[in-house]
């Protein structure tokens, strides 16, 4: 049984695109990254899983249960942190957290204290008087206070300073070690790279690639740049090369394919320098978007 499973999940907003034929399988206990730029369909997928919006067609299951039919059962097991956090006016953080805890049939007092302490959150302050970062902390605590089996994070780190981001990642990793599955949606690739096991890349409403982070970085792609000794190169083409950029007598590109072919091609030139390295996830990601 998958923690999250979608088959042909489709949602459109009238004439405008939402998501098309999204197929995802997230294993129990993994941290699964979900990346794509704004408007690619990450939030639509998440909101369909949470039954905040209704799918047009396809299947969406969490822990084997139908996201719409078994909504309440699913939501007892899910903690959700939206990209932008808004709560009730005139409410102190502790009141909001207690109100949130009252929806789950368990005592969350100890967990609220632990999480607030870890995030250095003053729970006795009114939420409306808090900074964006502190509001986000309230969101994190309310998403985790019931020790959910599945944690859904939609652009979770916006508003958090780098130190707090680190604390947040540690919290998520601890939750994961406890057995929680995490769906981590972001457009900041370095943070996905930091904690995720696998990643799905979404482009214009469609999943274009699902791979292990390690495979995505190490096995398939190379970042290549070379400099010619004398004359400049006006054209360079090779099967598997993408995002080719020229700068003076230097050429750089992302390569995916047989490395022997690459070396054979490079041997045609008189080179001053050559550099073949692992591309960052960001560069791979940009490659997908350029295709």
């Amino acid at each position: 049984m998958y923690a999250i499973e979608t088959k042909g999940l489709t949602k459109s907003y009238g004439k405008s695109r939402g998501i098309i034929d999204v197929n995802l399988c997230v294993n129990e206990g993994e941290i699964f990254g979900f990346i794509g730029p704004n408007g690619a369909g990450k939030s639509t997928t998440i909101r369909t899983l949470l039954s905040l919006i209704h799918k047009d067609s396809g299947v969406a299951r969490i822990f084997g249960l139908d996201c719409e039919k078994d909504r309440e059962k699913i939501l007892t097991e899910v903690g959700y942190l939206p990209s932008e956090v808004f709560y009730y006016d005139n409410m102190r953080a502790i009141d909001l957290l207690n109100y949130s805890a009252s929806f789950y049939k368990k005592d969350c007092t100890k967990r609220i204290r632990e999480l607030s302490d870890a995030l250095e959150l003053d729970v006795h302050k009114k939420i409306e008087d808090m900074s964006l970062g502190n509001k986000k902390k309230v969101g994190i605590v309310q998403g985790l206070l019931h020790s959910p089996r599945l944690i859904i994070l939609d652009e979770p780190t916006s508003g958090l300073d780098p130190l707090m981001q680190q604390t947040f990642f540690e919290l998520i990793q601890k939750e994961n070690q406890r057995g929680a599955t995490v769906l981590f949606s972001s457009h900041i690739l370095s943070e996905v790279q930091k904690i995720c096991d696998r990643v799905a890349i979404i482009k214009e409403g469609r999943i274009i690639q699902t791979e292990k982070i390690s495979e995505l970085q190490q096995n398939s792609y190379k970042k290549v740049s070379f400099t010619l000794k004398e004359n400049t190169l006006e054209d360079f083409q090779m099967q598997g090369a993408a995002r080719i950029e020229f700068q003076g007598n230097s050429v750089s590109f992302i390569y995916r394919g047989d490395c022997n072919l690459l070396l054979r091609q490079l041997s045609n030139y008189t080179l001053l320098n050559v550099d073949i390295s692992e591309p960052s996830l960001e560069e791979i990601f940009m490659h997908y978007y350029a295709e």
């Binding site: 905040l52 309440e72 939501l75 007892t76 808004f86 009730y88 929806f103 309310q142």
Partner: peptide, 18 residues
């Protein structure tokens, strides 16, 4: 309209209540 006005519909609609 409390949640709509305060933009916290996500909060209440992701709680385990139909």
């Amino acid at each position: 309209a409390r949640e709509k006005k305060m933009k916290c519909l996500d909060f209440i609609f992701t709680k385990p209540i139909s």
